[in-house]
């Protein structure tokens, strides 16, 4: 190598200036975007597989970390209000009014004294997560409506919540189904604040946004008034597997 130009030999293995190298950066960028698009296309099958795997893992996970993974099994806390007051047996009230003959206000003890119904079904959220075989116990909504004496011209029921913001609605026919509860217990314990306690609605056959948390009012109305999420684009008739463009297995 005696005849090597000293200027070049100063930097053995000096690469070409970066401007003339391979545009790997562009390829990585475009590749990432392509993978993202592929992920959207493959999402339904990927999601099913992951839910099965993570659901099983969550059952055996003492750390609870799997619960933080997307679709990691279990419930997620959604609140639309800035803060929600805590209510208990002393200050909780549920009013039934509107187009009824006998408006009534129930305390928590009043509700506990009524016949309780237990349902064990899957919970399906419209965002994808599903919790299998979740027990709910409470009073059938139809019982409270019958006790209040619904007037002939009534056609729907509107629910209000003591978070001050959330609302939900059902048609009267839907509300009279036997799988719709004013729930006091979930997963075999009293419903805690985070899950909408002490009393929440449980609409077994519909996506879980219909099951309003922190239930405080049942108003019988003439027509269905869209609830909180329904104003933001979700279906009012939210049958699991037959609404919101989803094809989940029915829950009830």
């Amino acid at each position: 190598m005696e005849n090597v130009n000293p200027e070049q030999s100063e930097e053995p293995g000096e690469p070409q200036p970066p401007e003339r190298g391979t545009p790997v950066g562009r390829r990585v960028l475009l590749g990432t975007i392509g993978l993202g698009a592929l992920g959207v296309v493959a999402a339904p099958s990927l999601q099913r597989a992951l839910e099965g795997f993570l659901g099983a893992a969550a059952d055996k996970d003492p750390t609870g970390l799997t619960g933080l993974l997307p679709n990691g099994g279990g419930f997620r806390y959604y609140s639309v209000a800035s803060s929600v007051p805590h209510k208990n047996a002393t200050n909780y009230r549920l009013t039934v009014d509107g187009l009824v003959d006998r408006p009534k206000t129930y305390t928590l003890d009043d509700l506990r004294a009524l016949p309780q119904t237990k349902l064990v079904k899957d919970v399906q959220c419209v965002t994808g997560w599903r919790v299998p075989d979740t027990p709910f116990e409470g009073v059938r909504l139809s019982r409270l409506l019958d006790a209040a004496g619904v007037r002939a011209k009534a056609g729907a029921v509107r629910f209000t919540c003591f978070d001050g913001t959330y609302t939900e609605s059902l048609t009267l026919d839907q509300a009279r189904r036997s799988d719709i509860l004013v729930a006091l217990r979930m997963q075999n314990k009293d419903i805690g604040h985070a899950h909408g306690g002490p009393v929440r609605l449980y609409v077994a056959p519909m996506y879980f946004y219909k099951s309003a948390k922190w239930l405080s009012g049942i108003h019988v109305t003439e027509k269905v008034e869209p609830g909180y999420w329904e104003h933001l684009g979700y279906d009012v008739d939210a049958w699991v597997g037959r609404s919101n463009g989803r094809d989940d297995d029915p829950t009830s």
């Binding site: 992920g39 965002t127 463009g245």
Partner: peptide
């Protein structure tokens, strides 16, 4: 709406 669910999955 199916796209939204898939997009949510990738986004998460």
């Amino acid at each position: 709406i199916m796209w939204r669910t898939s997009a949510t999955f990738v986004h998460d």
